[in-house]
Design a protein around this nucleic acid. Structure first.
Lengths: 204, 204
DNA sequence: GCTTGATCGAACCGGTCGTTACCATCAGGA
DNA sequence: TCCTGATGGTAACGACCGGTTCGATCAAGC
């Protein structure tokens, strides 16, 4: 397994700074990719720094510690993924079924990407090692659940909270199975097929 | 975080052997508990050995390496969990819905246990570090899926393979959510409620 | 009684890791 | 022009870990 590659930004010389926090952004992006691909313990600080052409001291000035870097990476990923799903749901207009279909549609696209490795937040919390991961994954999943509950409520189901949780179960189950069983978008399609009836079963 | 505690068996003196492979069983049980609780990298060989009162040499004679020990632990857990679900399904008699209810019933009991930490196989594959974990989790999930597909087929659904996969999604999603969101048996109940309609929707 | 083999305890090795410190360097502002 | 500050590079530190080896010890079988 070679070095990280392809992420190197910041072709600056010894003492240049080039941008106030462009360095921080480059580190965050490189860490996001490599932590997701190889796990939080699969890459060390030294390799991470050398891959972006930065020094350890710079990393520690920006993030304080490896855990601080991990927390920043996870927060960014959580925000981005939640925004993805919400933007997708918005394309469904006012139809809850269309919203749900759109959500599982982008999910399927994600599953098909060759570097798909499951949910970064859940993975990080699983390979726990530091505490913030737990509260971050809770916040992350609650963000998903809020969106799904909102869709369920718009569909007029009897118990939106419960249906929202069930939809999140299907989403997470598909995420896990697409990862370990390499199912690709088929996992999202099957999950959607199981999810759609939930929107209409308990309606009033 | 103190030592492992409470697992210590084998109160044997220096050169006694007490049992041919009782030592092996004790190591396997201690490793099963602590690997599940603290992660594969959360405990070292030295602590594991001292917790059961064994020496490193004995561990390496029995398992060859830490990865060998992990593989043995995961295989035992996979076999045991699959047997659990199959035994539960058997209590449902010939009624597929009753079988499914029984399966999610034992799942709920599991979720309620205070030391519940999700699926050990999936967790191990997530915090990858050695290759066998991947094929083992595939085999593990396929065992689950075979059972669920069989139930779906008995219910007479149009596409048992597809429904089996959807049921496995609900099972895995509930497993993940019960872990990180500490939902307990409610997760299994909600998953069952979403699963039962799948048995009757596409029947012929 | 002696041999065989399993075991413990301890030391040891090579490696990796996160973190800190120091230094030379260079850009930009006073 | 000089100072300030962010930077890259290097080295070192302390801790831990997986794995190996060795000697002492004791039970069991011939």
């Amino acid at each position: 397994m070679g070095p990280i590659g392809t992420i190197c930004l910041m072709p600056v010389a010894k003492g240049t700074s080039l941008d106030p926090d462009r360095t921080r952004a480059a580190m965050l992006e490189a860490a996001t990719v490599v932590f997701y691909e190889r796990g939080l313990d699969g890459v060390g600080i030294a390799e991470l720094c050398s891959s972006v052409g930065a020094s350890k001291e710079t990393l520690y000035r920006h993030f304080g510690s490896k855990d601080g870097l991990i927390a920043a990476v996870l927060q960014a990923r959580s925000d981005r993924n939640n925004a993805w799903l919400r933007r997708a749901a918005a394309t469904g207009g006012d139809d809850p079924a269309a919203q749900l279909t759109a959500v599982f549609g982008v999910l399927g696209e994600w599953f098909d990407q060759p570097d798909y490795r499951g949910c970064a937040l859940v993975n990080a919390a699983t390979q726990r090692h530091f505490e913030p991961a737990h509260s971050m994954v809770v916040q992350h999943l609650d963000g998903y659940r809020a969106l799904l509950t909102q869709i369920a409520a718009a569909a007029g189901v009897a118990d939106p909270d419960r249906v929202g949780g069930q939809l999140l179960m299907l989403l997470q189950g598909a995420t896990v199975m697409a990862d370990h069983l390499a199912l690709g978008r088929a996992a999202a399609d099957d999950a959607l097929a199981a999810a759609l009836p939930l929107l209409t079963s308990g309606t009033d």
